[in-house]
Amino acid sequence: MSAEPMTVASMLTLLFSAIMINNVIFARFLGICPYLGVSNSIETATGMAMAVTFVMTLCAIVTWPIQRYILNPLHLEYLQTIVFILVIASLVQFVELFMRKYARGLFDALGIYLPLITTNCAVLGIAILCIKLNYNLVQSIIFSFASALGFGMALIIFAGIRERFEVTDIPGPMHGAAIGLITAGILAMAFTGFSGMVK
């Protein structure tokens, strides 16, 4: 994969397939907890989506060189899980501190979502996938950014639907997560329509 020359078309294909076809939520099942947890309103969903996009892209920029220039040459691949989760946790903390000091507006908007991201399995999952799929640095960044956009899109669509639940008559046991998951299932079915569009 990395040997092939990067063209604009191949980048766009990567972008499109990560957003639509292999959507983080509907095809890869990553980040379901925040998906169900913070989708109460479009506003919080948008905040979370932006925070995830920011952190996930940054993570790719940091974890890829670590794997390539530290873990691989030293044959420490088995430490990948531990190293990546620590890097992500400290990165999130660092971003939070940095934002609080230098980007107050951004911090007020995204601050409360940042600690939640450490345990968002989509971030670690995408970082590991970049390595598994043998992407180079540019591909990894595009892939992570696009995956995060896909996550955000799924989250915002779902939040929009979920706001309607409040005015809908739902049978007792179906309240909350049950109806939410079934809705997500129907959404996933719709997204299945994209499969096969890119070879």
């Binding site: 095809a27 049950a178 109806i179 998951l181 997500a184 299932g185 129907i186 996933a188 299945t192």
Partner: peptide
């Protein structure tokens, strides 16, 4: 397919509730 996973889990949780 993924859709089946969401729907089955939703129905199972509804049954548990």
């Amino acid at each position: 397919l993924p859709a089946g996973a969401f729907i089955t889990l939703g129905l199972t949780i509804a049954a548990a509730n």
